[in-house]
Amino acid sequence: MAADVSAPTLGARFKRPSVIGLLGLLFVAALVFWLIVNLIKTPSDFGDVFLIGITNGSVYALIALGYTLVYGILELINFAHGDVFMLAGMFTITFSTHFFGLHQGQGWVTVPIVFATLLLAMLACGSINAAIEFVAYRPLRGAPRLAPLITAIGVSFIIQDIGLAWKGPNYVTAPDVFPHSNVFSAGGVDYSWNKLIVVLVTIPVLLALLWLVQETRQGKAMRATAQDKDAAAIMGINVNRTISFTFLIAGALAGAAGTLYSLWATTVRFDQGFQLGLIAFTAAVLGGIGNLPGAVLGAVLIGLIQAFNEGLNWHAPGSDWTQSIVFSILILILVFRPEGLLGEKTPEGG
C-alpha cells in the first residue's frame, strides 16, 4: 500500500528518467516485491500485521491532525504536541483509576467510565494546549518563525518534566479494560476487540473534525484565518480567538489519542510523547502538512510501514530500525516532495 502511493509521486517528480528517479522506482519495486513475497509466504501474519498497522495508524492520525491543524493556521510546528498526547495518557490513568475506580473485569460499567475518561482527557488536553498557545506562542506572533519553534521545543521539555515529576521515570500501567477476545478470526487472521475499539472511536472523531472544519461557522473562521489572517480580520473574524480554538481542538484530539493509546498499550511513560509525536509529525508531513485528509492518509501509511517492518517474517528489518525508516521517509519527503502526498504546492514549498 505504501508502495502504491509513493510510486507515482517519485515518477511525477522526474519528467526525464534520472538516476535518482530510477533508483527511487527500483526501491519502490523492491518494496512491493518484499510485501508480495511476505503476503504469499505467510498470508495470515500479513493480515494480522496489516490490522495492527491500521490500529496504530488511527492513533497516529489523531495526533498528526493536531500538528497539521496548528501548522495550517500558524505555520508553526508545535513540538510540544506529542507531549500533550503523553499527558493525556497520564490523565487517563488518573481519571479512570483514581477518580472512577476503573479496573479489569467490571463488566458494562467499563463503557461509561472509559467514555467519561475520554471526554475528560480531551477537555484537559484541549485546555492545556490552548493555554500553551496563549502563554508561549501568542507573545511571539510577530517574531521571526524560528523563535516560536524553539519555544515549542522548550515547552516540550517542560511538559516532559511535568510528566516525570507526576508519574516518575518508569512505565506506569493503565488498566487493561479493553476485551482481548476476537472480533473475527478468518484464515488465521485475528482481529481483537481492543484493536477494533481504537479504530471505532477514532473514525467518528475524525468525521466530527471534518464536519467542524468544513461546515461550521467556527470551521470557516479557521480556514479563513489559515489562508489569510488580515483578510480574515476584516471579515469580522476574531483571529486570536480562532487560533485559541484551533489549539483547543488539536489538544482535544491528542487527548483522545492519549486515552485510546494508553488503554490499548496499557503503559504510559513521560517520554513516549516525544517519540510518538515525531512519528505523527512525519505522518503529517508525508500527507502534506496543513492538509487534514493528508494527515490521516500519512498516519495510516506510517502505521502500516511500522507494522510491516516490525511484524513481517521474511527479511523485515525489525523494530530496531523503525525510527530510522520513519525518519528516512521524512527526509525523502522533504527532499523530493515537500508538499506531501496530498498537499498543494505553496511558495514556501509546503
Binding site: Q227, D228, A231, I234, G236, I237
Partner: peptide, 27 residues
C-alpha cells in the same frame, strides 16, 4: 479591533484583493 470594525459598517476590498485562495467564490 479590526474584527469589530466591519460590524460597525466599514468593509474593505484590500490591496492585492486578499481573497481566500482555497475557498470557492461562493465561500
Amino acid at each position: 479591533p479590526a474584527h469589530e470594525i466591519v460590524r460597525r459598517g466599514i468593509a474593505q476590498s484590500p490591496e492585492g484583493r486578499r481573497l481566500f485562495p482555497r475557498m470557492t467564490v461562493t465561500e
